[in-house]
């Protein structure tokens, strides 16, 4: 559209601008350094998606802002010119063009986000609970078990194995399929702390998980809404009173990373922080062994027992193997009983 005396052909200018915008966009999309470390299998998926959006966004930003700045200089009112500009009221094909381009971009982003969401495990939530239902409610028992007995939350009681809790959140990825997670931990949010209950009944304020293993968190809230966020894992799920939600992930490197509450939960919401400590599997086993709570011998439990009548360890014992806790780990628990 630029006219007047031009020495360089418009096509060449356009091409140069196009190449420059493309180079800058790809560079900024790749190396923006805006996101923290990647510590879960989901993190690279989210980050790559973000990179694509930043690349497209940078290109659009540069073109639109460039057009604005250029127009402000080029089409400013000249001194003593009080006339109006030429009356161009529109251009149908141009308008169709700039409606179609964003439409194509957002359709593309929409399809891409469904794909990313699927690979993060977003679509599994229904499937996994249905499977659990048919296999005798392994997920169900977990949900009803560790946290609920002491707060009396009306989660799932005696009749529970038949009523499968529908869990929102991120479940198994398509790669994990219907496999059970290696480790299942109950997470409870309360003003202003997170409590983690391990399969053996141990309750901690910090989350320890082994690197490279598939972990499922069953998240509940005792009082108000909280939100369980692992920034380095790129995953977050609200903890909702009266419902169990889930997050399933596989940590990819060892280290200590923050656990953050992301939903306003009261005056000290900002201090509701904890840590997730990712350890080598043997270190993790050692930590579990060192922190065993007291437990009890019962080999003959029937499922019909009301969970709240038994200690956590009691209830968990039959399922220990399922969660990958071997006999050696359980052995030290046997002699003592705790109420």
């Amino acid at each position: 559209m630029a006219k007047e005396k031009e020495t360089v052909p418009v096509a060449l200018v356009t091409l140069t601008i196009g190449i420059l915008v493309a180079i800058i966009s790809f560079w900024y999309g790749r190396d923006n350094g805006l996101l923290p470390e990647q510590v879960s299998q989901q993190a690279p998926l989210v980050d790559n998606f973000f990179r694509v959006m930043v690349t497209v966004g940078t290109a659009l930003f540069l073109l639109v802002e460039g057009a604005i700045v250029f127009a402000l200089f080029k089409f400013r009112r000249r001194p003593d010119d009080d006339t109006d500009a030429p009356p161009i009221k529109g251009n149908f094909s141009l308008e169709v063009f700039w409606t179609a381009i964003p439409a194509v971009i957002v359709i593309g982003l929409g399809i891409y986000s469904v794909d990313v969401y699927n690979r993060m495990g977003g679509f599994d939530t229904v499937g996994s609970t249905a499977v659990a239902h048919h296999h005798g409610g392994h997920a169900t028992q977990l949900a009803s078990l560790p946290g609920s007995s002491d707060v009396g939350a009306p989660l799932l009681s005696a009749a529970a194995p038949q009523q499968v809790a529908f869990k929102y959140g991120l479940g198994a990825t398509p790669a994990e399929g219907q496999a059970s997670p290696f480790l299942e931990i109950a997470v409870k949010g309360l003003q202003y702390a997170w409590l983690f209950t391990y399969p053996n009944g141990m309750v901690t304020g910090e989350l320890h998980v082994p690197v490279g293993e598939d972990v499922r968190l069953n998240i509940t809230a005792q009082d108000v809404l909280h939100s369980f966020w692992l920034p380095e894992f790129r995953i977050k799920q609200d903890a909702i009173p009266g419902e169990t939600t889930e997050l399933r992930f596989t940590p990819t490197k060892t280290g200590t990373y923050p656990v953050v509450c992301a939903e306003l939960c009261g005056a000290y919401h900002g201090s509701m922080r904890s840590q997730i400590i990712i350890q080598e599997p043997d270190e993790y086993e050692q930590w579990v062994a060192e922190n065993q709570p007291v437990a009890v011998t019962t080999g003959t439990d029937t499922v019909a027992l009301h969970p709240s009548e038994r200690s956590d360890a009691d209830f968990l014992a039959p399922y220990a193997a399922e969660w990958g806790i071997d006999a050696a780990a359980i052995a030290p628990l046997q002699p003592e009983r705790h109420a």
């Binding site: 559209m1 639109v64 057009a67 604005i68 127009a71 402000l72 089409f75 400013r76 009112r77 000249r78 010119d81 006339t83 109006d84 500009a85 030429p86 161009i88 251009n91 141009l94």
Partner: peptide, 9 residues
């Protein structure tokens, strides 16, 4: 942006 373009701002 197109309104600005070619205007007398």
């Amino acid at each position: 942006v197109a309104t600005l373009w070619g205007g007398k701002i």
